[in-house]
Amino acid sequence: MQETALVPYARLPRAHHDRHVLTSTVDVFGAAHWLLAERAPKPGGDVQPFDALVVSVHPYGDVELTELSAVRARWPRLDRLPEGGFVVAASRARRYEDADQVQVFDELGRETSTFSVGDAIEHLLVDEAGHLWVGHFDENPAGIRRWSATGRLAWTSDGVHLPGLMDCYALNVSGTVAWACPYTDFPLVEIRPDRPDRPMKVRANTVRGAHAVAVHGERVAFYGGYGEDRDRLAHGELTETSVEPTEIGLLALPDGAPPGRRQAVARGSRIYVQAEPFTAWGVFDLSG
């Protein structure tokens, strides 16, 4: 079985390694961001608002620091808005409708608005137009939804026929297009909300349990799976109605080691992978 090594992509500067990494992501333009706090949140009880630091490493290596005031999310999701602000969302809402679940910050780190997108956030990805794509896991039946940066619901999978959507395992947002691979049937779903005649296309898929998907032209790659398929990298080709499998391999860290505990972010043809202690990103690029 062929093994593919991730290519080193972005690293948290060592000067910030003394802080706790709350979460990290790679935005739609390729910049990597880390949300840092002085210490890890204490388990249980309400979270007291705290100041946090976003360290951004841009594709050409420039480093940018943004102080965020009064962050309230215990287990946050993070992404950057096109104009330079940030979105921080609590992945778990103590109440299903929690007006402070999503905090929007301007480029100076000041909170400008708050709203709710619902409990059980698996993925939070911002597209090039500034829309927030939210994929939920199985404790929230909302599935996949797109929101404006001011909290207006702009698209929802509830309004289309998508059988078996119990959990949004994989979500890829690039440009203004989203690709998803939801549990239980794991179809590859292409979502183009700005195309009113056909906003969604569903392709049958035999790859089960992938947590990230990359798409380039007529090619697709799925990363992850159940049990022994945890590090699987499964390739396929797109037809009008299905994904036809072509080859299966493994995805490893740049040094060849298995990733272990990791997280992945998918953007277009790229799958970014970050392994514990979550201070560095590697990338697999299907277009390469």
Results as ranks from 00 to 15, higher is better:
239 T>K: 09
218 E>D: 15
180 A>R: 08
236 G>W: 01
259 P>N: 10
200 M>W: 07
205 N>I: 00
161 H>C: 13
134 V>E: 09
12 L>D: 02
184 T>D: 14
74 R>K: 12
76 P>Y: 05
206 T>S: 14
73 A>L: 08
118 G>A: 13
43 P>C: 09
65 L>S: 05
185 D>W: 08
283 V>N: 03
67 E>S: 15
285 D>T: 05
60 Y>A: 08
195 R>C: 12
56 S>R: 06
284 F>S: 02
28 V>M: 05
193 P>S: 05
276 E>W: 12
232 R>D: 14
15 A>C: 00
224 G>E: 08
66 T>Y: 03
282 G>L: 04
2 Q>W: 04
216 H>T: 11
172 N>A: 03
111 E>Q: 15
106 D>C: 07
238 L>Q: 10
144 I>E: 05
143 G>L: 11
281 W>Q: 00
115 F>D: 04
166 M>L: 12
99 A>N: 11
243 V>R: 00
93 A>L: 01
99 A>Y: 07
252 A>V: 10
128 E>S: 11
180 A>E: 07
69 S>Y: 12
44 G>N: 08
163 P>N: 03
55 V>K: 02
187 P>Q: 07
165 L>D: 07
93 A>P: 02
98 D>K: 02
152 R>K: 13
208 R>G: 05
215 V>Y: 13
235 H>K: 02
178 A>D: 07
171 L>Q: 06
85 G>Q: 04
95 R>E: 15
137 F>K: 10
147 W>M: 10
262 R>I: 03
127 D>L: 04
231 D>V: 06
131 H>I: 00
252 A>D: 00
118 G>H: 11
72 R>C: 11
50 F>D: 09
142 A>H: 13
232 R>G: 09
